[in-house]
């Protein structure tokens, strides 16, 4: 989870490091901790530490973690020579390590030699058939080759064993959404909400899926989940505010004949008011646009 203060800290450190203000190691540690994908910057600043003998030796045993981080970043930037050098250095230090073996197989992946990578992963799995990292790499490999249904099969098999792995559920949900299989995606998001009920972004994604599915019941549920997102984010999520407005407007259209809508009309007008206030504060130039849009949805009072 990346919280607001962690995000601002990351941005501040990124600025500082980019402008040559030092603190590269703290930046790399934070990137690792928050699991954000900043491959180009990690490659640049990580290499500058690794090439400086004095800085490198001051890291102690953390040096090897940095080698691994830089190797993965280099693969992501297609700087395969650098990745190869890093892996060789790790290889020299840890000749029998499975973790380095996984990196080598990932290098094969980055080169695009899928058959060899598959062979490497299988041989790693022979020693430890329940290695989560490697099972996940196989899913990623199927995805990288464009074999989405293969990736789904693989992930489903993986999730039968590791049901508590929310990252995998999230990936599966994203794959299903990309294939427009919203019912299946909704199931995955339900699992995610069950396992991490305090993460607003799962509620938001679930509400999006329900809204896309359509139908009166789904729309009503979507509105509730948008409302819970607003609750969990303290009203700072613009998408959730828009979601409430759109849902109420759609419900109003569907339930035109039945006149029981008065009960919930307060929520949408509050959301509309919050949206207008937010736009007034952050983007006053577009305020007129948002007011007309909300008027056309018939939600603002």
């Amino acid at each position: 989870m990346v919280s607001k203060t962690e995000q601002t800290q990351l941005e501040r450190l990124e600025n500082q490091v980019d402008n040559g203000g030092g603190g590269a190691w703290e930046y790399l540690c934070l990137v690792r901790k928050l699991k954000v994908r900043r491959s180009e910057k990690v490659l640049k600043h990580g290499l500058s530490i690794l090439n400086d003998h004095r800085k490198r030796s001051s890291l102690g045993s953390e040096e090897w973690t940095l080698y691994e981080q830089v190797a993965v970043a280099a693969m992501d930037c297609q700087c395969l020579d650098v990745a190869k050098d890093c892996i060789n250095a790790l290889m020299k230090r840890f000749p029998e390590s499975k973790r380095v073996g996984k990196l080598e197989a990932m290098l094969l992946e980055a080169k695009g030699s899928w058959a060899e990578a598959e062979k490497a992963y299988s041989s790693l799995l022979e020693d430890n058939p329940l290695d989560q990292g490697i099972l996940k790499r196989r899913v990623a490999m199927a995805k990288a080759q464009g074999d989405v249904s293969g990736a789904i099969d693989c992930l489903n098999k993986y999730l039968e064993t590791f049901m508590a792995d929310h990252d995998a559920w999230r990936d599966l949900a994203e794959i299903y959404v990309s294939l427009q299989m919203y019912k299946q995606a909704a199931f995955c998001y339900e699992e995610l909400i069950l396992s991490q009920p305090t993460v607003p972004l799962h509620h938001l994604a679930y509400a999006d899926v329900l809204y896309t599915l359509g139908g009166l019941e789904n729309l009503q549920a979507a509105k509730k989940y948008y409302a819970s997102t607003i609750d969990l984010t303290g009203g700072k999520n613009t998408r959730a505010l828009f979601g409430v407005c759109l849902c109420s407007s759609a419900i109003g259209q569907l339930a035109k004949g039945r006149n029981k809508e008065d009960k919930e009309s307060e929520l949408q007008s509050l959301a509309a008011a919050a949206l207008e206030k937010d736009y007034k504060r952050r983007a006053p130039a577009t305020l007129s646009l948002i007011t007309t849009a909300l008027k056309s949805l018939k939600v603002s009072s």
Partner: peptide, 20 residues
């Protein structure tokens, strides 16, 4: 002030076969 604003990238499922 300090709410969750984004999820971490799913780095376990990172693929290198992108526009990079």
């Amino acid at each position: 002030e300090n709410r969750i604003v984004s999820l971490p990238e799913n780095l376990d499922f990172m693929i290198f076969n992108h526009r990079g």
